[in-house]
């Protein structure tokens, strides 16, 4: 009870803390301080993303071609649908949160409990969806080839549709074994070897005359450049040095590695916010059930955690725009 009293012995003392020019409680003001500083942190990340994107403006990956998975629709090109779904989940959980705050103003414990519960469920669905999206991104789908200069070459057919490495590579006997710590003199290890060798891919590419290479660079229509058959064979033969499957912080089959780095960092940081929001929501949820706020006579705690939850939604609106749409 004492913790939420905002006017302890200051009533009437205009110069002793009794004056509240912003007409908001201490807790709410501090939440606004936090939100503002967090907003500026996020804009720092997004501005850094913009910086790198402008730096590689003619070779940045196209989001529609990267995030095109949907559950149970394997192999179907579904750009954006899943992110749109995630956005809806988050907006809707924001709505239930604000409904909980509204019910709190009327001291309706049952309604607050119900809407807090829905909010938590929405948050969990969102975090789960993000995990699924990460899984797809990390695993990759088609695989690509990297050049000496670190650029990515992808394979397409005559219609411009992606072709997976597994459909290209022809088996060749090779003696390349993964080097593990217990075999070498220096006890060093190497990362897992890719499924195919570069020679297998090169041989398969030459054998299949319908294949073409799509480079990173964007043409004047904002689409990825597709080389002619002759150019493709020459480029692959001269420049390709390795296989890339999926994405991590160093390699990225979708294009510029920085794209993957920012994707992991920004959506990861946001996902962590959602996760901690869910944890805080659960704590408040149990306090509501236990009747803490009923006895306190005010549901202001629900309002404060609500502010945080809406902020997380607000940040997602911007991430959605700058990562998936623009």
């Amino acid at each position: 009870m004492e913790a939420t009293v905002t006017k302890t012995a200051t009533e009437g003392k205009t110069w002793g803390g009794g004056n509240e020019p912003l007409k908001a409680s201490y807790g709410k003001l501090m939440m606004w301080f936090f939100i503002l500083s967090d907003a500026i942190t996020f804009s720092g990340f997004l501005a850094a993303y913009g910086f790198s994107r402008f730096k590689f403006v003619d070779s940045w990956p196209i989001a529609d071609q990267v995030f095109n998975h949907f559950p149970f629709l394997h192999g179907v090109d579904a750009p954006m649908y899943y992110v749109a779904f995630m956005t809806f989940i988050l907006i809707f959980s924001s709505v239930t949160m604000v409904l909980a705050v509204d019910a709190g103003h009327h001291m309706k414990k049952g309604k607050v409990t119900f809407f807090m519960f829905l909010t938590i469920v929405g948050g969990l669905i969102f975090v789960g969806s993000q995990a699924w999206e990460w899984k797809n991104f990390i695993q990759g789908e088609f695989g690509a080839v990297t050049t000496k200069g670190g650029n990515i070459l992808q394979f397409v057919n005559q219609e411009g549709e992606r072709v997976a490495l597994s459909d290209i590579a022809v088996f060749q006997a090779s003696e390349r074994a993964q080097h593990t710590g217990n075999k070498g003199v220096w006890f060093t290890e190497e990362a897992a070897l890719p499924t195919y060798t570069i020679d297998e891919v090169k041989a398969g590419f030459v054998a299949n005359s319908s294949l073409l290479i799509r480079t990173q660079s964007l043409n004047e229509n904002g689409e990825k450049t597709i080389l002619t058959r002759e150019e493709s064979i020459q480029k692959l033969d001269k420049e390709a040095v390795g296989i890339v499957e999926g994405a991590n912080l160093k390699h990225n089959e979708y294009g510029v590695p920085l794209f993957a780095d920012f994707f992991f960092f920004i959506t990861g940081f946001h996902g962590f916010h959602v996760f901690s929001g869910v944890v805080i929501n659960i704590i408040i949820f149990f306090n509501v059930i236990l009747g803490t706020y009923e006895r306190r006579g005010s549901y202001e705690m629900v309002e404060k955690v609500g502010l945080y939850w809406h902020f997380v939604d607000l940040v997602w609106v911007f991430i959605f725009t700058f990562f998936y749409l623009v």
Binding site: K23, A24, W32, M97, G306, H310, D313, F320, T321
Partner: peptide
Amino acid sequence: IVLTLYKAYYIAWAFMHLEGESKGL
């Protein structure tokens, strides 16, 4: 970008209830 700012306005004003706060805040 404009539509994003439009959405951000509604989230901040209606959901975070900035419309009900004092002008200073």
